[in-house]
Amino acid sequence: MKVQGQILLAAARGQVWDLLTDPAKLAKCLPGCEKLEAAGPDRYKVSVKFALAAISGSYSGAVELSEKKQPESLRIMLEGKGTPGFMKGEGRIRLTEKQGQTELRYEGEAQVGGMIAAVGQRMIDVAARRIIQQFFDAAAAQLRSSVPGA
């Protein structure tokens, strides 16, 4: 499943970069993140619980940042496994300055395996979009609270 989109964040590019690369801040953006701890350079162990109404799945796995070109672009990989199967997402994020704000563009691939893939195909796209939306909403909220000067 392809995912792509863009969002305008009311913060300087450096701040957005900082948010995406600081594990503590990243953890707050990740929907349902229960744990995120360092496991090597730019690699973190994570536990997340994705939920949509009654449907939920707990996954444990890793987040990895790579191809970092501060402050313009980086690649984020998230993979995890849990009782409903596994999920894997990988994509590139590009940041551009737009009149003091930052435009974030993302483009990537998401894959789920196991039970969710077999029974959830009609809802998966929307669910993925909502989770990404939640991520950026949380990011925007964090940036708002940290602007100005914090």
Binding site: V112, G113, G114, A117, A118, V119, Q121, R122
Partner: peptide, 9 residues
Amino acid sequence: QLITGELMD
């Protein structure tokens, strides 16, 4: 992944 994995699809 077999996405017609049950009788709902």
